[in-house]
Design a protein around this nucleic acid. Structure first.
Length: 462
RNA sequence: UCCGGCUUAGCUCAGCGGUAGAGCAAUCGGCUGUUAACCGAUUGGUCGCCUGUUCGAAUCAGGCAGCCGGAGCCA
């Protein structure tokens, strides 16, 4: 029984092969006098393989009707091509048609806009661009795991449903099994979550960090890589309600170890893609972001700039550049500031650290100056904030003081505080938005186009 | 959520007060080792929805919806 061969393997062949079997979808068909050229793609790579279907095939009349999008298998010989655009092609001995795509197949053999393809997100992986994008997405995921695995980090699965409604990273989606048309109430008129599935309020996670820290305190170096949910009404090209995040956490590490890890990880992943996804990346360098390869090589080869928040403010003040929001110590950095630093001033990724404590989360470690925290953001050209991280506050008394200052409920964090009560150690970590990294490496400008089925406000099709 | 723009054939768009157009796709035919093939013909639209102005609205005004971009929030 002849085994199916993936097209990527056939196209890499050095020699003709007497008999091969391929299965895939028709991208386009062109008729010649006594035969038909069929371009077949099976998703294993960007390129199609050209099939020569001669009129001596017993179902040639059917083959001549093959439309774009139809599915088939072809048995035949891999032979050297007479045409100039490909080394090998398949001289078909048998073509078995699985399914003929009717004339209303929505994908034409021409360029479609991203906006249109978003309306048929279930079919867009069959296009060159989206096929390439999602092969890259797969390869990038693998690179992330490879990077951490090689460094001895353990992969931890933190929960997606959480009982603490105060992780402090944005609006959360409620998880409930209560009947929305018949909600139970307590005596004082509030919703009685005691009758809900978990016996208390539950939400989808906005971050696995707090759980991740607990595992770093046991396993040393860990990372999470999973879906995250934010119910923010954000309508931008860089936000989705469901996205994937990578969150490493290192025990016995400070903010500088954290920055090193972030920079190494970004460089490793891009290096991996340059090596393993070159053909797919070429499409993006050619049609999506001219100069993409230069940008990626630049990131891998040059170090990231590293400055403090105070220095960043200073650079912007002295720049003479006109900002809509004037840079002053204490402000939260705006998109225009991040872009100026990464795109105009440094022209490469820049890590900003030591932010005023007022604009950062409670768990970030208070610096000796008493007014900044050991937080760091990695800003990259074109994207803005790619990574946000910090050294965590390991001193129980300082952490408790911060929780009080911010008016948070200490009782909600008892389990978290235990890590500071029993064998507390300096530790640090960060969060990386996986889709933003996808945007960085492909040049794709909209987060909706780097995630298979995007979820954004008012949009949950497919 | 705020600001701006867009919505006309399956797709991409033109038309901007006088009864709807192009290119591509599709369909049919022709030619051809072609390569987003080529040549010819045909099909295809209550111009997003509602209301108003006007003798007359795709075109002007108002409202609504959807989409796109920017901002905020952040990953």
């Amino acid at each position: 029984m002849l085994q199916r061969t993936k097209i990527v393997k056939l196209l890499a062949s050095e020699q003709p092969v007497e008999e091969v079997l391929i299965k895939g979808w028709v991208r386009t068909r062109r008729d010649a006098k006594d035969f038909s050229f069929i371009e077949v793609n099976d998703g294993s790579c960007l390129k199609n393989i050209q099939v020569i279907a001669n009129n001596n095939l017993k179902n040639y009349e059917e083959v001549k009707k093959l439309t774009t999008g139809s599915s088939l298998e072809v048995r035949g010989a891999l032979v050297r091509s007479q045409g100039g655009n490909q080394k090998f092609e398949i001289a078909a001995a048998e073509v078995v048609i699985y399914d003929m795509a009717p004339e209303d197949y929505p994908l034409q053999k021409k360029k479609h806009t991203d906006e249109y393809l978003r309306t048929i997100a279930h079919l867009r992986p069959r296009t060159n661009k989206y096929g390439a994008a999602f092969r890259i997405r797969s390869e990038l995921s693998f690179a992330i795991h490879k990077f951490f695995h090689e460094r001895g980090f353990r992969y931890v699965h933190t929960p997606l449903i959480t009982g603490s409604d105060c992780e402090g990273a944005g609006e959360m989606f409620r998880v409930t099994t209560l009947d929305m048309n018949n909600i139970p109430h307590t005596k004082d008129g509030k919703v009685d979550y005691g009758k809900d599935f978990f016996g208390k309020e539950a939400h989808l996670t906005v971050s696995g960090q707090l759980n991740g820290e607990m595992y770093a305190m046991g396993l040393g170096d860990i990372y999470t890589f999973g879906p995250t949910f934010r119910a923010e009404n954000s309508n931008t090209t860089r936000h989705a309600a469901e996205f994937w995040m990578i969150e490493p956490e290192m025990a016995f590490a400070d903010i500088h170890d954290d920055m090193d890890l972030a920079e190494d990880m970004v460089k490793f992943c891009i290096g991996h893609l340059l090596k393993n996804s070159h053909e797919d990346l070429e499409l993006f360098d050619k049609f999506v972001e001219p100069g993409l390869f230069d940008k990626l090589h630049n990131i891998v080869e040059k170090g990231f700039a590293r400055i403090t928040y105070a220095e960043a403010i200073d650079i912007m003040k002295k720049s003479g550049h006109k900002f809509e929001y004037t840079p002053e110590f204490g402000i939260d950095m705006q998109t225009e500031h991040e872009r100026y630093l990464a795109e105009v001033h440094f022209k490469r990724p820049v890590i900003v650290r030591d932010y005023p404590k007022e604009i950062k989360a409670f768990y970030m470690r208070l610096n000796d100056d008493g007014r900044t925290v050991a937080a760091m953001d990695v800003l990259v050209p074109g994207i803005g904030e790619l990574i946000g991280g910090s050294q965590r506050e390991e001193r129980l008394d300082v952490l408790l003081r911060r929780i009080k200052e911010l008016g948070m409920n200490e009782a909600d964090y008892e389990w978290y505080l235990d890590s500071r009560r029993y064998g507390s150690v300096p530790h640090a970590g960060f969060g990386l938005g996986f889709e933003r990294m996808m945007m960085l490496v492909t040049g794709i400008g909209n987060i909706r186009d780097v995630i298979p089925f995007p979820r954004t406000p008012n949009s949950i099709n497919f």
